[in-house]
Measured scan of single mutants.
Amino acid sequence: MPVRRGHVAPQNTFLDTIIRKFEGQSRKFIIANARVENCAVIYCNDGFCELCGYSRAEVMQRPCTCDFLHGPRTQRRAAAQIAQALLGAEERKVEIAFYRKDGSCFLCLVDVVPVKNEDGAVIMFILNFEVVMEKDMVGSPAHDTNHRGPPTSWLAPGRAKTFRLKLPALLALTARESSVRSGGAGGAGAPGAVVVDVDLTPAAPSSESLALDEVTAMDNHVAGLGPAEERRALVGPGSPPRSAPGQLPSPRAHSLNPDASGSSCSLARTRSRESCASVRRASSADDIEAMRAGVLPPPPRHASTGAMHPLRSGLLNSTSDSDLVRYRTISKIPQITLNFVDLKGDPFLASPTSDREIIAPKIKERTHNVTEKVTQVLSLGADVLPEYKLQAPRIHRWTILHYSPFKAVWDWLILLLVIYTAVFTPYSAAFLLKETEEGPPATECGYACQPLAVVDLIVDIMFIVDILINFRTTYVNANEEVVSHPGRIAVHYFKGWFLIDMVAAIPFDLLI
């Protein structure tokens, strides 16, 4: 008679799926529990143990900040960024110097990925580790590398530091407007667009060049630039800015003055950032001319202004700041037409079709709590990747769950009947059967004279019903998954307890 339990259901295979997918890609990662103190490590794979030199037993239950890997060259700011990422709910990448158990130093890129439950609360953290440099290539500990984003994938490793954006290309926007319009339909740009040429040739750093990471940081200074100062900065030398009595002219307006920039070969870094931020506020060169004239017309309804409409929906549905990093990277690809469009465009503009998908598509409701890094690593669709929660398995109709209350009560009843059979069957065979043979035949009273025979008949009927119930009862397979398919249940029961239950259900007393 089957006594099969499996009270692990309803099970959740999400954690096993993450481990299996990460292991298949030869990654070095740990999984931490966000619900406990210090976000203790609950799993670390073999790749991480080989990377740091510690065994799994030495890593388990330690804080996922990996303070046991810190050393003299470990930056405090990087460690603080990892700790801050564990307090938030967004994906974050941090470069930090770690030390192995043998004392060797290596520069590592740590990717902190939160995993949320159905309520939107962070319950786990996945920390992925990628070695960037070994100890002989690690720089000085005073050099802070965590304020910069990861290198873009479309640049060669040897040319990542030679990417320079020439400031004269930004200063000569109005001069290039006529050349853009003359391109017409034969050019790649839309009317009114501004073409910015980027020099990728390796050259020595000069005062006129600005690194790509500095251009990325310009967006942080746009908020500090007032509207009046932006307007004066875009007017140009024809209309000098008016300053109040006793007030000095704005240095932001002076930063885009061609006369002032041409007199000296070098520009201050602050002026460069502010000038680029001011130019980015204009949607095209037409807006710059309109600002000089004193009238700013409404933005025209053409394809170039609607190019950012799908980007707005993608940004609203993005799951991490990696989408913004990807957008900034692609927006700086050289030799393309940049349409400086305000994100607050007309909502009635139709979304044009684009061959290049900048932001990841909208994630469906079932995966809105899973970050983009987890979705990318697992390579699963929205119909396959579940949320991290207890999910009731989908069972067929008329199927009994093996952990249901009805099955528990039924098993206790069958257990009592088995005990009765084990006690009274030998007793009936030894004593009652002998008395029946010696006594007179009682054929007239039937079952009324033999109450134990009636009980034995009921017990046999219950055993037959138990066999039928076992054909529709779920079970737990070797992978700790609840199986509810009727065919698989029948095959599993035939290979197991079916023969024993059938022999126990045969009414031998009635056959004798």
Rank of each mutant, 00 (worst) to 15 (best):
P2H: 03
P2A: 05
V3C: 08
R4G: 13
R4V: 09
R5P: 05
G6Y: 14
G6F: 12
H7F: 08
A9I: 13
P10K: 09
P10F: 15
N12S: 07
T13P: 08
I18W: 10
F22T: 07
G24N: 12
G24F: 09
Q25E: 14
S26A: 14
K28C: 14
F29P: 01
I31T: 01
A32G: 09
N33A: 07
A34E: 01
C39A: 14
C39Y: 14
C39L: 14
V41Y: 01
V41N: 01
N45K: 01
N45Q: 01
F48V: 01
L51P: 01
C52N: 01
C52F: 13
A57P: 09
A57E: 08
V59Q: 01
R62F: 04
R62L: 10
R62M: 08
P63C: 13
P63V: 03
C64W: 01
C66N: 01
D67L: 07
R73T: 11
T74L: 01
R76S: 09
A79Y: 02
A80I: 14
A80L: 12
Q81I: 09
Q81R: 10
A85T: 12
G88H: 08
G88P: 01
E90Y: 13
E90N: 08
E91Y: 15
R92C: 13
R92S: 13
K93P: 06
K93T: 12
V94K: 01
I96K: 01
F98D: 01
L109H: 05
V110H: 01
D111T: 14
E118L: 13
I123D: 14
L127A: 01
N128Y: 06
F129Q: 01
M133G: 14
M133V: 13
D136H: 03
D136Q: 11
G139T: 15
P141L: 15
H143C: 15
W154I: 08
P157F: 15
A160I: 14
T162N: 15
K166T: 06
K166W: 07
K166Y: 01
A169D: 06
L171F: 15
A172Q: 07
A172L: 01
L173P: 15
R176Y: 03
R176V: 03
S179K: 15
R181A: 14
G186R: 14
G187R: 06
A188M: 07
G189E: 06
A190I: 06
V195G: 05
V198P: 01
V198T: 06
T201P: 15
P205G: 14
S206Y: 05
S206E: 15
S207G: 12
S209E: 08
L210W: 15
N220W: 06
A223C: 03
L225Y: 03
P227T: 06
P227H: 01
A228W: 06
G238N: 14
P240L: 13
P240S: 09
A244K: 14
P245Q: 05
P249T: 14
S250F: 15
R252L: 05
S255G: 07
S261I: 09
S261A: 08
G262L: 07
S264L: 14
S264N: 04
S264Q: 07
R269H: 12
T270C: 12
R271Q: 13
E274L: 14
C276Y: 03
A277G: 08
S278F: 08
R280K: 07
P297A: 07
R301H: 08
T305R: 12
T305Q: 11
M308H: 05
S313F: 09
G314D: 09
L315T: 12
N317M: 12
S318A: 08
S320T: 11
D321H: 06
S322N: 15
Y327T: 14
R328C: 07
R328E: 15
R328P: 12
R328H: 12
T329N: 14
S331V: 01
S331R: 11
P334D: 15
Q335G: 14
N339S: 09
N339P: 14
F340W: 15
V341C: 13
D342G: 15
G345T: 14
P347N: 03
A350L: 07
A350N: 08
T353G: 12
S354K: 04
S354A: 14
D355S: 10
R356E: 15
E357M: 14
I358Y: 11
I359D: 07
K364G: 14
E365D: 13
R366W: 08
V370D: 07
T371M: 07
T371E: 01
V374L: 12
T375N: 04
Q376W: 01
V377G: 04
L378C: 05
S379A: 05
P386S: 03
